[in-house]
Amino acid sequence: MMNQNTYQAAKTASVVLENHFKDLIRVAIEKGEQKIASIPKQQNIEAIINVAFWASLRKEEGRSPKISISFLSPEEAEQPLLFGVRLPFNTNTLVKLAPGIERAGVHLGVWEENGSIYIWGTTLTIPDYCFVCDVSEAGLLVIKHRRLYGFGKYTNVAVLKGDEIKIIDKQFGSEKDSPSVVTALLDLNSPCSLNNGVNVLIQLAVSMRKHQHGGILLVVPPNSSEWRKSIVHPLTYPVYPSFGSLAKLMEDYKEETAQIEWRIKLYNEVENIAGLTAVDGAMVISRDFNVYTFGAKISRKDASAVLETILYIEPVDGGEAKERFAGEVGGTRHLSAAQFIYDQRDALAMVASQDGHFTVFSWSEVANKVQAHRIDTLLI
């Protein structure tokens, strides 16, 4: 089951991860939640991470594997695709199976019996809080779980890259002025319903990060033109009238309507809007999802001071909120977005870098300062 080589980070992280899932599932059961996943043991977590890591460094037909490994029994899955024989859980098997299971939403099901982990098949549906080890790229693993009631993006618990271990720490989202998109990603305001505006912002963030061109999304109050004072005029790509397809879609959501059709429409609209953030400049969108412009150049508001310092926060274990000079957080995109929030304090700015980094800028009434939440560990 285990490779001869041992991935040391697997041993280190597995102890923390077992306690995390144990507490998470215990609380859910105490609250009377149904169909909750089984608690993964430390040795099983270590074995899964170890094999997944070494498999991530192998290539099949010149491509690194991308696999979502879920720890659950066949009985816990809904309509599982069962293999006729149990397959050994090792790097060779994972690499061979990878081309057939790398599509989004497909989970490779693994389970333990008599001290050994085996592969039993695949499934599209897993129980709430199910342990998932996602092989994202060579040497990069993300430990996550399906959030309660299954709405929205899975909740990341840890990110392992080489010998670097980042355990997500929810305390950084517990401050009363933390932006809702951050608290939702940390699973602090679960459940986050499918048509919830915060959920849509998360999907936009994921899509922005995915296109890898970098971009800025400015979220401003509806029915307000104050944001225009922080934008260079004339607008390069104005949208007139404002594009309200996503807003209309959110209004039309009904619990009893066909979910699959609505979700497809939502996905397409998110991809459409997020794609335009790749154009140089910033997209401006209202909180109720009307698009005003894209490719806009941010400027300092008249008579406003130059932003000097911000509060930098990465929600990982061992991290701490630090005051930094604005120029230290990133390049021109980050600096202009931070200045925009300094001038437009009721707005939100989401910035994607070409290298995959993602930062959310908001105004902190508590600190009386622009705060920058680095959240790429939550979006992978």
Rank of each mutant, 00 (worst) to 15 (best):
residue 360 V to C: 07
residue 84 G to C: 04
residue 364 S to I: 10
residue 208 M to Y: 10
residue 143 I to Q: 00
residue 133 C to E: 01
residue 156 N to M: 06
residue 255 E to Q: 09
residue 237 Y to I: 07
residue 269 E to M: 01
residue 88 P to V: 09
residue 199 N to S: 15
residue 369 K to R: 15
residue 275 G to R: 00
residue 268 N to Y: 09
residue 279 V to R: 02
residue 218 L to D: 01
residue 179 P to H: 01
residue 336 S to H: 07
residue 127 P to H: 08
residue 283 M to V: 05
residue 59 K to H: 04
residue 25 I to R: 14
residue 180 S to E: 15
residue 127 P to T: 06
residue 97 L to W: 02
residue 336 S to M: 09
residue 137 E to T: 14
residue 98 A to I: 05
residue 349 A to N: 06
residue 150 G to V: 06
residue 314 E to M: 11
residue 344 Q to P: 01
residue 347 A to I: 00
residue 231 I to H: 00
residue 351 V to T: 05
residue 322 K to W: 02
residue 304 S to F: 07
residue 257 T to L: 09
residue 135 V to E: 01
residue 239 V to P: 03
residue 151 F to H: 11
residue 347 A to W: 00
residue 307 L to I: 12
residue 341 I to D: 10
residue 58 R to Q: 13
residue 101 I to Y: 06
residue 321 A to V: 01
residue 9 A to S: 15
residue 151 F to T: 02
residue 223 N to Y: 11
residue 330 G to A: 06
residue 322 K to L: 15
residue 332 T to F: 05
residue 320 E to P: 01
residue 353 S to L: 13
residue 294 F to N: 00
residue 349 A to H: 06
residue 268 N to L: 14
residue 292 Y to Q: 10
residue 327 G to H: 14
residue 215 G to D: 08
residue 193 S to K: 11
residue 86 R to D: 15
residue 161 K to Y: 11
residue 172 F to T: 02
residue 158 A to W: 05
residue 34 Q to Y: 10
residue 215 G to W: 08
residue 196 N to T: 03
residue 248 K to S: 12
residue 192 C to F: 02
residue 195 N to S: 12
residue 263 R to L: 15
residue 266 L to Y: 03
residue 311 L to K: 09
residue 94 L to F: 05
residue 253 Y to F: 14
residue 235 L to D: 00
residue 15 V to Q: 10
residue 274 A to Y: 06
